[in-house]
Design a protein around this nucleic acid. Structure first.
Lengths: 215, 215
DNA sequence: TAGATTGTTAATCGATTAACAATC
DNA sequence: TAGATTGTTAATCGATTAACAATC
């Protein structure tokens, strides 16, 4: 295995945004771009763009810029997007439905392969060709299918028990949509979509902007 | 107006998490806590806890710790949570439904007052006592009601036009759920829930953890 | 009082930006 | 060649952690 120097987390967090911009540029038929131009579009400095790309061994050409398709593919490689991650959704409520129906995941390298719930009336339903399965069958399902990621869209009070069930069955990545703190063992990776946190920051910035204007 | 020194954005982003912990502690009947204890629970240093609280003029007591209820209220004040922000949701699809049904917003100071869509069959429907209104009526609605925040849960291709409509009608805060880049004028504040970005970071961390383990 | 813990400054660490030589 | 732009290091900036005097 090739030894890769670990990328700083600040850089990792910016990469999906670079990836989105590069995808859009490619769709627009733009095949090369300079750090200056890309930085201008994204509202960051050219220096940061170059520094970030330098971190992962960029493919730029002096006097020319970066090849959009090549750079985009390099980011795909870093994020293993051509592997196709498998995702199960736990909780077939509105949020689970929304995730299951969203076609953007598949396009980006994440395939929803099953949805789990406990409500009898939902079992067997198909959402975007993906079946709703009873949560009791999760252990069996996890044995027979390789599952990379579990998206947790169950009610708040059930999240911790569901997280335990999921990780006990060998799933190592949790995508948590509930406003609670995940507690798991060390070898499980977690990403939280904390909607309320985001809403609070938005509200704060709104009031701050209003106060600025009043002056 | 009292002059308030601006809080560093790193601190602001951590505050909702403090707030969640303090709420939980209060529910558990714990009325005071030290920076050490809180830091341990949250997985951050006691030093950072004190430093953060110091930034906004904390209410701690030497030799004692912080009063949970008081500290929680101070955070509520900073985020104007007792004001009750008004929120409209644009897009009554699954995600819009999920947001409208979620009771946690109201509890935290954000009231959903209307949902807009363009599909005739949805108009008039009530979700959690909140009516679905035709998007054409938004200008009229925005004149008659004070709207703080618009949550955008419309399909990707419609987001920019909807953002324009909303901001043209005086709404100054956008909560964007689509994977596109918001383009607005300067006096509009935006928060993005970039689900794919979060998923990509999760996938990256998963593969990194797997690679670590293989060694 | 003695022990605990904050308030606050200083030191360290990491992330961003600037600068410019290398080179296409 | 001249112009453009990267690759890369150094300088700056901001965020985190350490330290300890103040004080409950």
């Amino acid at each position: 295995m090739k030894s890769e120097k670990k990328l700083p987390s600040a850089v990792i967090k910016r990469m999906p945004r670079y990836y989105r911009y590069l995808t859009t540029l490619q769709q627009m038929g733009i095949s090369r771009i300079s750090s200056r131009d890309l930085g201008n579009r994204m509202g960051i400095t050219a220096s940061q763009v170059r520094h970030d790309f330098f971190c992962f061994g960029a493919s730029g050409l002096q006097g020319y810029g970066y090849d959009v398709a090549l750079l985009r593919q390099e980011i795909r490689d870093i994020f293993s997007l051509d592997d196709m991650f498998t995702v199960i959704i736990i909780g077939a409520g509105n949020l689970g439905h929304a995730l299951a129906k969203y076609t953007g995941f598949e396009k980006n390298g994440y395939r929803v392969i099953a949805i789990f719930d406990i409500k009898p009336e939902l079992i067997g339903e198909k959402i975007n060709d993906v079946e709703v399965i009873h949560l009791d069958k999760l252990p069996e399902y996890a044995k027979e299918n390789h599952v990379d990621i579990a998206a947790l869209t169950v009610p708040e009070i059930r999240v911790l028990e569901v997280a335990k069930l999921v990780t006990d069955n060998g799933i190592k990545a949790l995508w948590n949509f509930s406003p609670i703190e995940m507690i798991t063992n060390e070898d499980v990776v977690v990403e939280n979509i904390q909607m309320i946190d985001s809403l609070m920051v938005l509200g704060y910035n709104l009031r701050a902007a209003e106060a600025d204007k009043a002056k």
